[in-house]
Amino acid sequence: MTAEPILKARNLVKRYGHVVALDRADFDLYPGEVLAVIGDNGAGKSTLIKALSGAIQVDSGEITLNGRPVNFASPLAARQAGIETVYQTLALSPALSITDNMFMGREIRKPGLLGRVFKMLDHAEMERQARRKLAELGLLTIQNINQAVETLSGGQRQGVAVARAVAFGSKVVFMDEPTAALGVKESRRVLDLIQDVRARGLPIVLISHNMPHVFEVADRIHIHRLGRRLCVINPKDYTMSDAVAFMTGAKEPPAEALAA
């Protein structure tokens, strides 16, 4: 690659008691690309994403964003740096409405005295924007945007989480298994959405167990194994069964794909 990585990590280590979830893991994300991260259950993919998005703090290692070292103390800090995440658990508040969830932590206040003195929220404006964003993304046509998230189906919830991240992400969007609960057609929408976001120039990190999805949208594939990056492959050069073989350890990855 000629360009510098927008987000780069070296030697990340994260232990949970005796479990080493990240074992000197490296990571590179280049501008405008879709990077897929694949690996067995428990390989440490979610832990990697959480470390990069401020949800957990690593024991050692360094992370740089646009070449500058960063140390996100909280998800809020990462978010303020323009990094949005669809967590595997979605991180939605079930009892709150779709609008409330989309604007959680970045609520819009009414203009003027009502907003400044009485801190009154501009529900109408937030609803309008939420509706527009959902429609723009072609993700949801929801009858009642004030419906509690817990009254939505699993797939609909995932849609809300994806929409929230895509709508607000300005530097990087992480998606940890965004299509896990989705049907065929809904998965299609999310994959198209990923392409759209890439067309906007925003890089995306996609964690998925679904090889056809990965091979369809990814520019590069980061294979994670036993807490570290094993290799990075170009989906044009390898088959799905190669990828699975590397990921499970059935086959040694070729030398040129091994991470530097």
Binding site: P75, T85, T89, A91, S93, D100
Partner: peptide, 18 residues
Amino acid sequence: RRVYAVGDDKEAAELAGI
């Protein structure tokens, strides 16, 4: 809204930036 979010699911609220 944040009081409700924290009571609803504290971990989710934290991940959502609260």
